[in-house]
Nucleic acid binder design. Structure first.
Length: 934
RNA sequence: GCCCGGGUGGUGGAAUCGGUAGACACGCAAGACUUAAAAUCUUGUGUCCAUUAGGACGUGCGGGUUCAAGUCCCGCCCCGGGUACCA
């Protein structure tokens, strides 16, 4: 019987579904294992062959763990809210839910064909009210908590109110937007509205006027990770800075824990590094500079406190509040002109023109707290309002930006550090600042002669002792802007009373997304929800018009899978205590600064309030590489409809044209399909490769290039097509065979025949020409050796996620067993189990042929027995001066002396020793023999 | 600029702890079977020299450590990713 993958795969997919093979329940008698894929956004284009790469890897690992006795949770769902569905809705008037559901159905159909072991009873969709109920609930909790630095955790806001009532704002070590000072009396005297305004300063989810990334084209604000190089990540539209009253999440309060937590997770170094950079910890000193003839105090942050004697001026960000206070009447006009000009420059222009120095003098002078010197205060747009205090002490001698500014405006430059291996020199001769951290201090009073690190330490002590400042740690991580002025997202559980936000009662959740007539802003610029009829509470208070951003729904989805139908809680205690956290998370590296930061933050918050048992959500994380496209080209001779094959294209003047990779096989064009592909090519003519006898008439060979996988390049390969042609098991095997999981690589269907052949060859070990050929005979030592070598290799490689080498190992195993003409059940049965995680359909069929009546999913992973691999001899490579010349079979337990004798007396050795002296003989038993001659 | 990855045959890749470089597969070539094709099977296939035997060279480039380097160290080049006035 032939290997009929089509029939066989349908049969087993139906079996799994009928028998609920992949249904998972809590089982206290088995250890849990949680394998998670980053859930997809269901786009209109469907899955291409790159999407399942990570899913196949996680599926293999899930099945492997199950075979090893684990109770494996392996769910799947959809990140269903998103801009593309909404943009499409704006264009067509179709409800985004309709297109989203359609896309989800298509995704599901495609996923089902690949034979994944998902427990679909646990599916979640972020746009489902039963799901976003808990997104809204979590937001409420964040609104009702503040961050206490002492406890290093979120605490209920009522506790803070009690503190205000007894002590006012005194002696609080908590995270806030700005420092406020009031007494208990003052607090009590405030109106409800004033109190609410103050509490927003501390809430973890808070409403505030903040500098936001506004994208006019998308009509919404965006979070920092949604903006790249001044453009929106989605769509590439320009983004500008603007102050708006928006919801934010106080992610920055968790900066330290998000950074420290990286030490305890098993993620790739590069991913951790991306997160570390994004969080951006810097340790330095906060210092206060007094201003001459003024009460204003200038707060600055510096990591180079040692260079304080090199400060020759101060610079304020144009947006700094101090600008107005420090501008003198003489400079007022100049400053205002400058502020107008900078405002006109977009964020993108500012970033693009980093070299362009702009600034203006305020007219004020600050006083250096260490030297007592007076220094001018400038305004410059190289100083960012959003980082540190929006003001810097400028050290032009040792900071390249300050140096450029000083040169441009002719401000003094002093050298205070002599870099290692250099002499003191005249700053006016310098090309650039000397930023080196390895050097010795000069011109710096009590710091003279110290090394830079010592000087930093000493300055810190000095400023502390003299009340000038303190040691401080700054983070680059900003709070996450959480409002979107869009329709297709979670509604906020928020209403407004007297312009102050209040949370809906839990009994009102979920607050479902209302219908609107159009998915556009209202005439007076309100978000689309402004169009909804009756968008207010029962009492008549208006509801929030913004919706939540994309990362809201993806931040806690992994918890929901544990207990997806619970209508009392996000996740029940029992489920959470059993499943705990994700043991293995597989997904793309593009979520490094978005989802993976937010969801860690969200989880830590839930941990603080006692909802979940783990502080970190994802124990081990693997980033699968991107699958790039591999495009094919045909070469049209200019001005004709004649196409010349790749090898002959240089003999003509040609235009390369993308051709659909689906009508090309092993770079050979299917000419008939090409003619049908487009009417333009129906009458095309072809110049083919020359045959070996030199005559024309061979194949039409296409050129190729690695590009992004996209429709416009005609290089999109759909997994359904591969499943149709070769079967799901071949697709699964081939995706793994392409190369290491974490490496990016182009999809190239060339080579898929190899793995398909391998599966057929495996099949034929069971089925010969005359039917089933299995034998109950005892296996030979050779056969057992092949089997156990494979058990060891596959087990080791699956453990280290090296799936590509597993495929090779299977091929070697089957090749060797076929050579041995093995048809013994004793060998083929364990082999079927080894295959099951990789090629579940064929494995089920083989398992059944071996006489089993239950699924191979519930078999036991074969145990490796080293005894079968014991050898009596070892084939030594014999090297001379490190170059291998011949091999020599010797007993494994032979003594070093005997090995040396055997090697030196070998006939082949004479040739290399002849006429030379043996200087040394290196023998590593059962490894190598190296003879040094000279 | 800074911080991470990576560079091995015609192609994808293997070499897990410094110990036989190129496993496995594709492609290609030759052959068997076949009326023919497909499928299948056999053999060969890093480059260069040599009829063979065999030899020289060879893991981006240059140097070093070592009995031995794709693997470790120093310097450089190229490709991919992250980040960018972060004080």
């Amino acid at each position: 019987m032939e290997y009929n993958f089509k029939e066989l795969e349908q049969k087993w997919q139906k079996y799994w579904s009928d028998n609920e093979t992949y249904k998972v329940e809590i089982d206290q008698n088995r250890p849990k294992f949680y394998v998670l894929d980053m859930f997809p956004y269901p786009s209109g284009a469907g899955l291409h062959v790159g999407h399942p790469l990570g899913y196949i890897a996680s599926d293999i690992y899930s099945r492997y763990k199950r075979l090893n006795g684990f109770n494996v949770l392996h769910p799947m769902g959809y990140d269903a809210y998103g801009l593309p569905a909404e943009q499409y809705a704006i264009q067509t008037g179709q409800h985004p839910e309709t297109t989203t559901e359609k896309n989800i159905a298509r995704y599901r159909e495609q996923l089902d064909k690949i034979g994944f072991c998902y427990d679909w009873d646990r599916e979640v969709k972020t746009c489902d009210p039963d799901y976003y109920h808990w997104t809204q609930w979590a937001f409420k909790q964040m609104f009702n908590h503040y961050y206490c630095n002492e406890a290093d955790a979120a605490k209920p806001i009522e506790e803070l109110v009690t503190k205000f009532e007894t002590n006012g704002s005194a002696d609080l070590n908590i995270v806030c937007s700005e420092q406020l000072e009031f007494t208990a009396q003052e607090w009590k005297a405030k109106t409800e509205k004033e109190q609410q305004e103050i509490l927003l300063n501390y809430r973890i989810a808070y409403l505030a006027d903040t500098m936001v990334n506004w994208c006019p084209e998308l009509g919404t604000v965006l979070a920092n990770d949604e903006v790249k190089e001044g453009l929106s990540v989605r769509g590439g539209h320009p983004v500008e800075q603007k102050v708006m009253r928006q919801w934010s999440l106080r992610v920055s309060a968790y900066a330290k824990r998000l950074l420290d937590g990286l030490e305890h997770v098993d993620w790739s170094d590069s991913l951790k590094e991306i997160q570390r950079n994004w969080i951006g910890r810097s340790e330095g000193a906060a210092m206060t500079f007094a201003v001459k003839d003024s009460d204003v105090k200038m707060e600055i942050f510096t990591t180079r406190a040692d260079t304080v004697f090199g400060v020759t001026f101060m610079v304020l960000a144009p947006e700094s509040e101090l600008v107005a206070q420090l501008t003198t009447s003489e400079q007022k006009e100049a400053v205002e002109t400058y502020l107008q000009e900078t405002k006109k420059r977009t964020e993108r222009e500012r970033q693009a023109e980093v070299d362009k120095v702009t600034g203006v003098f305020t007219g004020s002078y600050a006083i250096n707290p260490c030297s007592g010197e007076q220094i001018p205060v400038w305004i410059g747009d190289y100083v960012l309002a959003g980082y540190g205090t929006g003001a810097v002490m400028a050290v032009p001698g040792h900071d390249s930006r300050d140096f450029k500014f000083a040169r441009h405006f002719n401000l003094p430059i002093i050298q205070v550090v002599v870099p290692e291996g250099e002499e003191v020199s005249d700053p006016s001769t310098w090309e650039d600042s000397k930023d080196s951290k390895a050097g010795t201090m000069i011109n710096s009073d009590f710091l003279n002669g110290l090394s830079v690190p010592d000087a930093i330490a000493k300055t810190k002590v000095f400023i502390k002792d003299n009340g000038i400042g303190d040691v401080q740690i700054n983070y680059r991580l900003r709070d996450a802007i959480f409002s979107r002025q869009r329709y297709w997202g979670e509604p906020f559980p928020v209403y407004y009373k007297d312009d102050m936000p209040y949370m809906l009662d839990d009994s009102k959740l979920p607050l479902t997304l209302p219908e609107v007539d159009k998915y556009l802003p209202t005439e007076n610029g309100e978000p689309p929800l402004g169009r909804a009829k009756n968008w207010k509470t029962d009492e008549g208070f208006p509801l929030e018009l913004n919706t939540m951003p994309g990362f809201a729904g993806s931040s806690a989805y992994y918890l929901r899978y544990m207990d997806p139908k619970n209508d009392k809680a996000l996740v029940g205690k029992e489920a959470n205590e059993y499943w705990q956290d994700v043991d293995l998370y597989i997904g793309g590296t593009e979520h490094a600064t978005g989802h993976l930061i937010y969801s860690r933050f969200w989880n830590k918050f839930l941990y603080d309030i006692g909802e979940v048992v783990k502080d970190e959500p994802y124990k081990k994380l693997i980033n699968q590489g991107m699958i790039q496209g591999r495009s094919n080209f045909v070469y049209r001779i200019k001005g004709t409809n004649t196409f010349v094959s790749y090898g002959l294209r240089e003999e003509h003047d040609v235009t390369p044209i993308h051709v659909d990779v689906n009508i090309v096989r092993n770079d050979e064009l299917d000419i008939e399909a090409f003619k049908k592909w487009s009417p333009d090519y129906a009458s095309a003519e072809f110049i083919l490769e020359k045959l070996s006898d030199g005559k024309a008439g061979g194949k039409y060979i296409c050129g190729w290039a690695v590009e992004k996988m996209s429709k416009s390049m005609y290089n999109v390969v759909n997994p359904d097509v591969i499943v149709e042609q070769y079967g799901a098991d071949t697709l699964r095997f081939y995706e793994m065979f392409l190369g290491p999981l974490e490496q990016s690589k182009p999809w190239d269907t060339n080579g898929i025949d190899g793995v398909h052949k391998f599966l057929r060859k495996t099949w034929r070990m069971f089925y010969g020409d005359n039917g089933l050929t299995l034998s109950d005979e005892k296996a030979t030592p050779e056969e057992l050796k092949v089997l156990h070598k494979t058990i060891k290799k596959i087990t080791d490689d699956v453990e280290r996620f090296s799936f590509n080498t597993c495929v090779s190992a299977f091929m070697i195993c089957v090749n060797e067993l076929v050579d041995l003409k093995c048809n013994k059940k004793e060998v083929l049965e364990p082999l079927a189990v080894l295959l099951a995680p990789f090629a579940p359909h064929i494995a089920e069929e083989l398992w059944q042929l071996l006489g089993h009546e239950t699924s191979v999913c519930d078999a036991q992973w074969p145990e490796f027995n080293a005894e079968f691999l014991v050898e009596s001899t070892y084939k030594y490579p014999v090297s001379f001066n490190g170059k291998m010349r011949f091999t020599l079979d010797l007993p494994v337990d032979m003594s070093k002396d005997d090995i040396e004798k055997a090697a030196l007396s070998h006939t082949m050795a004479q040739k290399w020793i002849d006429g030379k002296t043996i200087r040394k003989v290196i023998i590593v038993p059962n490894k190598i023999i190296n003879i040094v001659v000279g």
